[in-house]
Design a binder for these strands. Structure first.
Lengths: 354, 354
DNA sequence: TTGTATGCGTTATCAG
DNA sequence: CTGATAACGCATACAA
């Protein structure tokens, strides 16, 4: 199609620069240069940046002008080395493509950045091996704190994280013994909510699609328990490995149909699976919810756009990130909140697939 | 639904730890501690980590044992301060939820991490204001290099980036004058490919949906030029702002239908728009491609799963990240590649919507 | 092959 | 309110 050796150029519109400051020294300015120009000692410049109220107003303003003129920014390595404090916070996401995780990390970063922190995003890929490597890499990065979209299950990593001596925030589940701080979701309750909603719609023979471990299993357990109480029969459980796209939901749904036994509804442990199931159902000419109802969890973008819309159990993913950021800021400022373990509310989004 | 004050607990399965090393000093070990235990000078430990071949094998093995036993990892701040080199590489993504960008960043990180670099992911949100703030934040982070999923248009930022004195990699477009290194896509060619494909299918009255700036505009320009040559009439151009979800494609498609003039096909500048258009077309009972053909760009997950599948102009997004990583490694190792500007090939994926 | 002396740029500490 | 001094932990330059 295109010859990579001779691509045609894209004519990009360049937007001209406003008249700018310049500092043509070659290397970034140091605090000493700023201090000299302002006629003060380096430590006074440092104070202006960290405790401005402790510096005389006139001195402060003069220094700030020089800072502006030179474009000075303190060297983070020297600062971290001397003060023992880093301004880097690492957020680990088990799947960088997940919309929910993306929203949470986005709001986490938005909460921390105004306070001078830099949020670094890493990925763990739902893999214990990667999780181990990641905890190791933290020893090398020495961040101010670390946040996970998930909880850490491997005891070795729990210990290693606790030994880092920095704040640790887990999210997305509500275990009894978090490593440190927590913004949790009651996953088992989600399964129970699902069972109640399906029972209410008159369904009796239900199926489950989800991962066999992690949060999917938590939702399944809650689903199982509530289903038993409500008189629902779980006819099949289709267990999947890592979920990377809609195609996994389609495959799982196909596997479900291939098993015998009439099923009138399926609860999927996340919306990627549920959406895939819905698409596969339509592709096979099944009417949803008449032939088969589908209930999801997590509310992603596509769930709202397909027909019928996916009925799903949802929560405010951005709030998870924001609360995590707020918990962390309180801790790092030396006045931790009384409550170090928060839970985010679940709610049902009705759209027509049940 | 759920009372957030009293969430039920998720019983998480903890995986027990293997018997581990321990170092109970309270604080992380320093190079001096390792050196003492191994009976050498600190510099020898440093050498073992950076130039192992320059240390006697027996000495090296003894030191490595102590490193393993203590869990020593060198302090990155001290290392960066002294050596002037950081191992952090920043990758800026204009939309952290985009599948294409996610794939590129993932493979970029996968290429760099084995070589000891840490990849930090930031977000620019298609906004010049954010882009300015981001370039400022780089002064504070002092990374070893920076990569963008996009090209920098604001001259002020181009200058500021060039002045950082670190390798800069732009991607996703093929401008004549990149700041430094480039892994580009010939966007204008994509528009031309689109026009050729539509002409070949016998369409004559075409429409365009896309952003009015950035890469969308580049694809539009190529589309316009080739359409004129091929005798196609561009009946309408629907311009959109930031694209955040399928809903934008649905809205744009609705806007297109509201304009008069019969159109037999629409080229969308990205697959999120195209998929939204396809969904909206189906919701309105239109038959695709009989009533209206839809052609996309970028090949995302959903494009393959809907019915009919979206015909789209695609490329290997993971290759963009990998090539960017390889260019960078070559540069940082002191032996830059002869070719500092690479182009990734485009290809057509036929699925039925044209 | 290994070691000694020195300084990267900043901030904690204490003195004025 | 401002400054002098020292130290954070490591790697460069040079010496042995």
């Amino acid at each position: 199609m295109t010859d990579p050796a001779k691509p045609s150029y894209d004519d990009v519109v360049r937007i001209p620069a406003p008249p700018g400051r310049s500092n043509a020294t070659g290397r970034p300015p140091r605090i000493e240069e700023v201090a000299e120009r302002a006629g003060v000692a380096p430590i006074t410049v440092s104070r202006v940046l960290r405790h401005p109220e402790k510096v005389n107003r006139k001195t402060r303003e003069r220094i700030l002008e020089v800072i502006e003129a030179t474009g000075y920014a303190s060297n983070p390595h020297a600062r971290a080395l001397r003060s023992g404090r880093s301004n880097v916070v690492v957020a680990f996401v088990s799947n960088i493509l997940s919309q929910q995780f993306g929203l949470a990390v986005r709001s986490f970063a938005a909460t921390l950045e105004p306070e001078g922190f830099e949020v670094l995003v890493g990925q763990t890929s739902y893999s214990y091996a990667k999780e181990v490597a990641m905890v190791q890499s933290l020893r090398g990065i020495r961040p101010a704190a670390v946040m996970f979209t998930g909880v850490i299950e491997l005891e070795e990593n729990r210990t290693a994280l606790a030994e880092l001596g920095i704040p640790v925030i887990e999210t997305w589940a509500f275990p009894r013994d978090p490593i440190d701080m927590l913004v949790g979701l009651p996953n088992a309750d989600a399964g129970a909510m699902a069972a109640r909603r399906l029972a209410q719609a008159g369904h009796r023979r239900v199926a489950f699609i989800g991962r066999s471990s992690g949060r999917g299993a938590l939702r399944r357990d809650g689903f199982r328990a509530a289903a038993a109480q409500l008189g629902l029969t779980i006819v099949h459980e289709i267990l999947v490995g890592e979920v990377t796209g809609l195609v996994d939901g389609r495959a799982a749904f196909t596997a479900l149909l291939e098993r015998s036994g009439d099923v009138d509804t399926v609860f999927c442990a996340n919306d990627l699976l549920a959406t895939g199931a819905l698409i596969e159902a339509r592709a096979r000419g099944l009417s949803v919810p008449r032939d088969l109802a589908v209930l999801g969890f997590g509310d992603n973008d596509v769930a709202d756009q397909i027909t019928p819309g996916l009925t799903t159990i949802s929560f405010d993913a951005a709030a998870v990130g924001r609360l995590a950021g707020e918990l962390l800021l309180a801790r790092l400022s030396g006045t931790p909140r009384a409550e170090q373990r928060l839970a985010v509310d679940l709610f049902l989004v009705e759209r027509g697939s049940v």
